[in-house]
Structure formats: structure tokens, C-alpha cells
Design a protein around this nucleic acid. Structure first.
Lengths: 209, 209
DNA sequence: CGAACAGTTGAAGACGATCAATCTGAGTGG
DNA sequence: CCACTCAGATTGATCGTCTTCAACTGTTCG
């Protein structure tokens, strides 16, 4: 992508400041915009008819979200942290992409890069036990400079236990128990609910999938 | 996509005939081509270190597969049925897409359309019981004209029970039992292992997710 | 004809969900 | 400053579902 592409993209974008609790859209809303995270964390979730909820993704800096199907959003998007996202009118963005093949190609790569990630998640959900799921979740967070400080080895989790549980498709209690197991094994240490000291080497050993 | 785009695409493609057992690529192979199914069914699967296997998708007519990550295929692709696929050299295809924005846009739409499907699968795998998973699988197959005959109401399954089980993330035995339950409820009738008579109305009722 | 494999069915055991109780920490008002 | 409150997190006990192991059936292929 050229700097000109980057500039053209920003020219049609609109900045939105977010803070914990900010709702960007809900499932069923008309899908007018596509979003790009600049900073902060956004939770993508889906409510099921029986009241259960699935967290489908956490979106960090550089991530795109808000692609509609049949003109409507299929999921909810809520901010978990202070930050800023850019939003683009769908039609305007589409026009820009058609006019700028290299920019469109960047979006195509982003979209295809999503697929293996989702596949990894499918494997995780269907084949592994709760502890392994939580380990995988922690590894995913640690790979994110935004919430893991490699110096102090402390991970800051912006999401609640139910968020983690609904992301991994397990019960909240199971997440607690899994963290308990990891703490007893000296792989993590809970400073408080949202701050974990992590022994990366051991954690990675656990995560050999 | 214009007819010219279509023609240009076919011009760089190479037809490959497939039959049950044909392997198109294995995980770890250099990712030289992208594939497009013309007819038949292709199973996309991933082998895990512990010997387990996850079936990630069945690809039918019009479906694309074979996008590599870091230059390598991450999954296996095997034909389950007679048919034909087109394959395109990755670099050649990329060049064509950059030259033809509307064609590239079609690929972008295809890629983004995959994401909600995968999300649906994640929800299915994590929240529902075995019977519901099998029902969802059957509904998915039925929505495919290629293997479901709406007149006779007979579904022809090209894949084996282990394939179905590994696709839904359950044990082979559980698939058998789920089919038994559905048969006892008169929702399906097993003509033979690969041919099911289906009461679509009742099946859809079961599938209210 | 026999062997190997796919599918089905039965019995036992393990894992995680659920329900219920307790604990912790942050914010509030006395 | 300290008790109080409320929500989120943790821990414990029970129960149900699905996996696992094993036996048996039916089919295909050398």
C-alpha cells in the first residue's frame, strides 16, 4: 500500500473515540460502516436465541471489523477499553477499493489472514480441554504488545471472566478453575483479577498444540 | 465481474480432474496454487500432532480453497467425489487481481463471506449438543443442490462417518447415535450409509438455533 | 473364502456444566 | 477511617453428556 492509498483511506474515515462500554453496533443493525481499530480493544459477540452469548473475537490495533451480511451486522461490537477506531462508509470504502487495487489487495490479505485464525479457533474449541483453551487464550493475549509487558512479564486483561469464558466456549467457573490449575503449576500468578504475571517459557510449553 | 474478467481468470487456470482419494495438497507443502471447485467435493482437513484430525470444511462447486500462510498450505485437501477443480498459480492470480479490480472485489467478497460461516461453526461447536450439530450438518448439506434431491427428499453424503465426526468435532460413535435418535424421531430414514431420506420440515424445526 | 474396514450398539468412566455458597475488591455513605 | 453493599470471581458438590473401550454386524476386496 502506498502512502497515497493510506492518505486516501484516512480521508474518507471518521474517527470515533471509545471507552469501556461504548457500543459501536448491535446485531441486526443496518451495516453502514466498516471499522478499523487504532487503539483500544473491541469485543465482537453474538447473542443466541436461548440467551447464551458467544464472543467471536477481540479486535486490537490494526484489526478490521464490522463487515455486514445482507446489509446487516450479524454481531455486536463493544469497546472494552479506552481508545479510538476509524469508521468508513461501506459504499465509499468499496468505491475507494475499486479505484485503488493495491489498497483493495491489502484488505483481501487481511480477510484471508482471518481464515486460518478462525480455523485455529475451531480446532481449539473442538479438540482441547479447558486448561488448554485458557492457555491458548493467554498466549494469544501475550502475543499482543498492547496488553503484555515483556519486561515485567505482566499481562493486563481488559476483559472480564465471562468474556473469556464466552470467547472460549466454556463456563465462567471453568475459566477460574483453569487459572487455578495454572497458578498451582506456577505457570501464572494472579496479581489481581486483571493482572497476571506469566512464566512465558512454561506457558508456551503448555500450549504445544 | 465482467465476462472479460471471467475469461481472463479461466485463461490462467488449469483444470484438474479429481476422483475419490485424489490429494490436491498436504499441510506443509509449498503453497503454489489457489483452487476453485467446478464440480465434486473436496475435504479440507488438518492433522494435529497427537494424531487427531479436524475436518475444517467441505468445498463444493464455486468454492475457493488453497490459500497459503507464509508460503505453505496449512491444511490437506482431498477429493471425496468425482469432479473437476481449476487451479491458479498464486503469483499469476495476484497479478490478474491487481489488474482487474472488479475481479479482485469478487474474491474479497468471497473471503469476507467465509467469515460469518466460520463464526457460525464456532458457535455450533461450542454451544450445542451432538444431535444439534448433526442436524446443522445435514441442513448444510441439504442446502447444497449438488447432493440433495428436493423431489425424492434424499440426501447423498459423499463423506464417511469419521469425516462427519471430525467436521463437527465429536466422536464417530456419537454421529451414529445422533443419526439413530433422528431416525427414531422419524426425521430421517437411513436408506443406506450414504443415502438419507429427510423430512425437511421437521429437520428445520430441529435446527432452530 | 477370509480379512480388513466402516458402521452401529452397549457399558463404563471422565470431563465440564450447573447450582449453590463463599470470597474479594471497589465504591459509598456514615 | 471504617463498615456496608454489590458485582465479579472463586471454590465446592452434584449431575448429565459425550468419549472411550469393546463387541458385533455388514460390506468390500484380495
Amino acid at each position: 500500500m502506498t502512502p497515497a492509498d493510506q492518505a486516501a483511506l484516512m480521508a474518507i474515515g471518521e474517527a470515533v473515540d471509545i471507552r469501556p462500554g461504548t457500543n459501536l453496533f448491535r446485531q441486526g443493525d443496518p451495516g453502514t460502516h466498516v471499522f478499523l481499530v487504532e487503539s483500544g480493544v473491541v469485543r465482537i459477540s453474538h447473542d443466541l436465541p436461548d440467551g447464551k452469548r458467544q464472543v467471536l473475537a477481540f479486535r486490537w490495533a490494526e484489526d478490521v471489523f464490522g463487515m455486514a451480511s445482507d446489509g446487516r451486522y450479524r454481531n455486536n461490537a463493544d469497546a472494552l477499553d479506552r481508545g479510538r477506531v476509524m469508521r468508513f462508509h461501506t459504499e465509499q470504502l468499496q468505491g475507494l477499493l475499486l479505484a485503488r487495487p493495491r489498497l483493495q489487495h491489502r484488505f483481501l490479505l487481511k480477510a484471508t489472514a482471518e481464515i486460518p485464525l478462525q480455523q485455529h479457533r475451531i480446532i481449539l474449541m473442538s479438540k482441547y480441554d479447558v486448561v488448554t483453551k485458557v492457555v491458548a487464550f493467554l498466549l494469544e493475549c501475550c502475543s499482543n504488545g498492547q496488553c503484555f509487558d515483556p519486561v515485567t512479564q505482566v499481562l493486563k486483561l481488559p476483559m472480564s471472566r465471562p468474556d473469556i469464558a464466552d470467547y472460549m466456549g466454556v463456563a465462567t467457573e471453568s475459566v477460574s478453575r483453569a487459572l487455578g490449575v495454572l497458578e498451582r503449576r506456577k505457570i501464572i500468578h494472579r496479581h489481581d483479577m486483571h493482572h497476571l504475571a506469566i512464566d512465558m517459557k512454561r506457558l508456551r510449553e503448555c500450549g504445544r498444540l
